[in-house]
Design a protein around this nucleic acid. Structure first.
Length: 817
RNA sequence: GCCCGGGUGGCGGAACUGGUUAUACGCUGCCGGCUUAAACCCGGCUGUCCGAGAGGACGUGUGGGUUCGACUCCCACCCCGGGCACCA
């Protein structure tokens, strides 16, 4: 007998070559078909270095879903691409001088090689990198559509500035308030920036979360991020200067408790208000200090409140009181109006501030032992009109009253801010805008797109984007008047690229438009999106915004980009997150080389529920490898006894080991199918196939060849979504067929039920005996049988049987006293 | 502080809507077979405690509760992981 050795190094390349040659996973956009579509998508990788365990997990999950959908009668779009613009490649360029295009291309080649070695069933015909001009041409085109629509605009905004390197820094480059590279304290600078008006969509982004099949915690995170608050806008007037200051409050019921008024240090009127007062100098110093301070530090809720008086007053519109104005950094310019009414009696922060500076604290709602009290209760100290009302009613009444003479009105506020998309960076999509002295901001005409990213010599930003050094490129002529003009040198945030890439996959060859809406409608939206939870907020929010905005512009017709979302857990090493700095990163490559891709893929799914974090263990890998080897060996040995041919799945007259084996096979079909339908229980699905293979081994001597073949081929067919090479190989050895062309195995429900089952016999809920019984036996029969058992009799003899609980086919429980 | 997720054997984990002995499957460990030998492979055992044994008692973070019956439901608490955090 020849040696049977499972050799993934022979099996895997063989099948990969077939899939490559035959373009097995390619789907065309024209093919007419009755099959329902399924768009399965893993988040596109950022190509830096080589793939890691997180990638392996991501694509193992996605591929299992794709294969399962295909074999259960769906036409599956399963594309791949690369999020190729971005900071790591640029930082690498700053260090080494290597063009980001080159280092990125190398990394992409590495990803491509490994994806193929993993046997992932991608439709490679739609592959692209977002840094390809053929793609970013449309990123620019989309930007211009947003601009036309008023959804892209320019305004001054604070950015992180390193005075030593004379550069703008991305938020991620600011570590503890200091420049990542030189350690200098970072300052805030006001610069003109491009924004997307995502806040216009806040309400819809919030509401439509209800229409989407996403993990609850991701929905919650998005909800909190959008942060909708209902309340009122109320106007306080500074009589001395004759200026109205509106504030937003969620608690207009506490208006009579307002004892001071606070503005954010960034508020444009702060210096003007203080001018000429005795506090002018102190205010100036305070404002400067808070501007240079790190945002994270300033935002810490525990730290002691700071602030200075402005030397002015405003009038509380509900009672005409003059209250002092302050400037304090606990008020944020970005939220609401940048100014607040302070109610120290019923707000913790205002209370802390008032205590620190000796300001009046007034109770206007009853309840709680001490102030501040944030709960509900009856209104007091708020005048005869409102005193005695419940605060919730008073809230509406006070707003209505103010609204009557224009001093306030209902209002909704969102925490969500507009999306700052400009980056003073080289390796990104150029913003297709020309600055003309005469015409102002002029969009580059569509037929001149793409604005190609030029080569530069020095990638280091010097206060402006490195693109500013590409003199020839920067100096252009105005598309409108033809006079000399300058190109915009900022590039776009890479989140812009990833906000629409999944649309491009649907029509990736289109050079006339980013996509043809009819073609898009054949595939989009994504039916199952799979990726890391770290993108739960930004990427998913931005992509949702893009789809909604593009729908409004008529470029597509859908509400949400990702119908269902699955977020995978991390792969850890000895419980710790893998990171380069810790030096505990393990690459999939050695495992793929040593055990084969199927083993690595199966193991990463078998290790635990895929939405949870899981710890990598080398000995666990070996166990999964052993299982695949057992399956393969079983197939190889059976194949030796006879030529491949159709399976004989008949159960007529089957008995003994044959019947038990067939039962187990159908049990496994049922289990795996259930675990994959709407769930992601890959770990238990794989365990079920393991059980089936174990059953084959233990019944090998007693079972017939057709039964063994059926059971083994079924195991191969069921494992295929997780271990495609081994599944295909074993299935072909036994049947001569390609498993992916075969429909998903169908369960025979009659084999799931047994004629005779074991019934648990309990006395007062405690198990005392077991007995065999016909599975169809009814309650009475079971009770009669149970009463005849000696061990049951021993326990109920001489006692009162108060009640008998019978669960057919499961148990009989005697309640005795 | 707030919002999520989670606490089950030596380890990763299973138990779908409360219903048979809780711990499937895999790992680890132990025993046996194969082998000149080892590896591979094949078969078996492996929750804890008491007991020579048959057997018994206890066991799903802790404490209560509901129920004939609770890993599963309810209340309170403890611990771990993640996210948000002065948003008025």
């Amino acid at each position: 007998m020849p040696e049977h050795r499972y050799d993934p190094r022979a099996i895997e390349p063989k099948w990969q070559a077939i899939w490559e040659r035959e373009q097995t996973w390619h789907v065309s956009n024209d093919e007419a078909t009755d099959l329902p579509k399924s768009y399965v998508l893993e988040m596109l990788p950022y190509p830096s270095g080589e793939p890691h365990m997180g990638h392996l997990k991501n694509y193992a999950v996605g591929d299992a879903v794709a294969h399962f959908h295909r074999r259960t009668g769906r036409r599956v779009l399963h594309p791949i691409g690369y999020d190729a613009f971005g900071l790591p490649a640029e930082n690498h360029a700053i260090r080494t001088g290597e063009h980001p295009r080159d280092s990125t291309a190398q990394s992409i080649a590495q990803f491509q090689r490994e994806f193929r070695e993993w046997g992932v069933s991608f439709d490679w015909s739609r592959e692209f990198a977002t840094s390809d001009p053929r793609v970013y041409r449309w990123t620019q085109w989309l930007f211009l559509r947003f601009l036309e629509r008023g959804l892209a605009y320019r305004k001054e905004a604070a950015v992180n500035w390193c005075p030593k390197d004379a550069t703008v820094l991305a938020n991620e480059q600011v570590i503890d308030g200091r420049c990542e590279r030189c350690g200098t304290l970072v300052e805030a600078r006001q610069l003109e920036q491009w924004f997307f008006r995502i806040t216009d969509y806040a309400e819809r982004l919030l509401d439509d979360l209800a229409t989407v099949d996403w993990p609850e915690h991701v929905v919650t995170m998005q909800r909190n991020w959008i942060g909708r608050s209902e309340g009122a806008e109320v106007t306080f007037r500074c009589e001395e200067l004759g200026i109205d200051y509106p504030v937003f409050t969620t608690r207009p019921d506490t208006l009579f408790g307002v004892t001071f008024f606070v503005m954010a240090p960034e508020h444009p009127d702060v210096l003007r208000l203080a001018a000429g007062t005795q506090h002018e100098q102190a205010v100036r110093e305070y404002v400067n200090r808070s501007q240079t301070e790190d945002g994270a530090e300033r935002g810490a809720a525990e730290r002691e409140k700071t602030g200075v008086p402005l030397g002015r007053t405003v009038v509380n519109p509900v009672n005409g009181e003059e209250i002092p104005m302050w400037v304090a950094d606990y008020v944020l310019m970005e939220y609401g109006t940048g100014a607040i009414m302070a109610v120290p009696g019923h707000d913790e922060r205002d209370f802390a501030f008032a205590t620190r500076f000796g300001l009046e604290i007034r109770r206007v709602i009853e309840g709680g032992d001490a102030l501040p009290y944030a709960g509900d209760g009856a209104i007091v100290n708020s005048g005869p009109r409102f005193d005695g009302m419940q605060n919730r009613e008073a809230l509406d009444a006070i707003v209505a009253w103010l609204d009557g003479d224009g001093r306030g009105h209902r209002s909704v506020n969102f925490r969500l801010r507009d999306w700052l998309l400009s980056r003073q960076r080289y390796w990104g999509c150029p913003i297709p805008i020309v600055h003309c002295d005469g015409c102002g901001l002029v969009p580059v005409p569509d037929d001149e797109l793409p604005v190609i990213l030029p080569d530069v010599r020095d990638y280091k930003p010097k206060g402006r984007s490195p693109l500013a050094t590409a003199e020839e490129w920067v100096h252009t002529s105005c598309p409108r008047c033809g006079k000399p003009a300058l190109r915009e040198t900022d590039t776009m945030d890479t989140f812009v690229d990833s906000s629409w890439y999944f649309l491009r996959y649907c029509d990736a060859d289109n050079d006339e438009a980013p996509w043809d809406p009819d073609v898009l409608a054949r595939w989009a939206p994504v039916d199952q999106y799979i990726g890391g939870v770290e993108h739960a907020i930004l990427h998913l929010m931005y992509a949702r915004f893009f789809v909604k905005a593009l729908a409004d512009m008529g470029h597509l017709d859908m509400r949400e980009p990702f119908n269902a979302l699955f977020t995978q857990g991390m792969i850890t090493r000895e419980g710790a997150k893998m990171s380069k700095s810790k030096g505990n990163v393990i690459s999939p490559t050695p495992y793929v080389e040593r055990y084969g891709a199927d083993t690595a893929r199966c193991y990463i799914l078998f290790i635990g529920p895929p939405d949870q974090d899981a710890d990598w263990s080398d000995s666990g890998v070996e166990g999964v490898h052993r299982f695949l080897a057992r399956l393969w060996r079983l197939g190889a040995e059976l194949a030796e006894n006879g030529a491949p041919g159709p399976l004989d799945a008949s159960t007529d007259g089957a008995s003994g080991d044959d019947l038990e084996l067939l039962r187990k096979a159908h049990w496994a079909i049922d289990k795996v199918t259930g675990d994959m339908s709407g769930r992601f229980a890959f770990n238990t699905a794989i365990a079920a196939v393991m059980e089936l293979v174990n059953e084959c081994y233990s019944r090998r001597d007693g079972a017939s060849d057709p039964a063994l073949r059926f059971a083994t081929a079924t195991a191969a067919s069921l494992i295929f979504p997780f271990a495609p090479h081994t599944g295909a190989e074993v299935y072909q050895l036994l049947t001569g067929e390609r498993v992916w062309d075969e429909p998903w195995p169908e369960v025979d429900p009659t084999l799931l039920v047994r004629d005779e089952v074991e019934i648990a016999l309990q006395i007062n809920g405690k198990l005392r005996d077991r007995m065999p019984a016909a599975s169809g036996a009814d309650r009475e029969q079971l009770e009669t049988l149970a009463r005849a058992r000696p061990r049951v009799q021993a326990h109920i003899d001489g006692k009162d049987v108060v009640r008998v609980v019978v669960v057919p086919a499961k148990l009989v429980n005697f309640v005795v006293r």
